[in-house]
Computed example of a mutant assay.
Amino acid sequence: MRKRDDSRRGLAAVEFALMLPFMALLLFTLVEGAGAMHAYSSVVQASREGARMALMDGTASDIEALVQAVTQGLKSEAVTTSVTADSASNTVTVEVSYAYHPFIQNALELLTSQASLELVAQTTMPLP
């Protein structure tokens, strides 16, 4: 039968205490990254849908309303839409931008000295 080694008592608790900050940082990064990717995906989808509506002779106010509907899960005051028609190349460009604010307010500011991250998607389509 083996004797218990009392010098190794509590080793698992110490290892857990050493690894906890790294695991918490990893979890925070995953959650924050997922939130940012969801916001960016919504902005890209809104840009594409806005360009499609512009092809169907939608007015700028119709396109902005569609963009607001597609980006419903985002803060509406942080979403901006720009519609540009270029008659020389016969194209229309819809640009949607979103000021992404992280879940923990000061986290991004500590890393980049900016309060928000600007997510921009631009779609250009030829007019018929």
Rank of each mutant, 00 (worst) to 15 (best):
S89I: 13
V83S: 01
S82M: 06
D86E: 04
L110R: 03
Y98K: 05
T112L: 11
A78H: 04
E77S: 14
T91Y: 05
A107N: 02
E95R: 14
T84R: 09
T84K: 12
S87M: 02
S82L: 04
L108T: 13
Y100T: 05
T80N: 09
K75Y: 05
L108R: 14
N106I: 12
A88L: 04
P102V: 13
D86G: 01
A107C: 11
A78C: 00
Y100P: 03
T91V: 11
E95F: 01
A85R: 15
S82I: 05
Q105T: 14
N90M: 14
A78G: 00
A78I: 08
E77Y: 09
L108Q: 07
A99E: 12
Q114P: 00
E109G: 06
T80Q: 14
I104N: 06
Q114H: 09
N90T: 08
S87Y: 00
A85G: 06
Y100M: 06
P102M: 15
D86V: 00
T93R: 13
A107V: 15
V96I: 02
S76M: 00
E77K: 14
T80R: 14
N106V: 11
A107R: 01
L108I: 14
F103K: 00
D86Q: 03
S87T: 05
S87E: 07
L74V: 10
P102A: 11
L111W: 07
V94L: 03
L74H: 07
V96Y: 04
Q114T: 05
K75H: 07
S82H: 07
K75W: 00
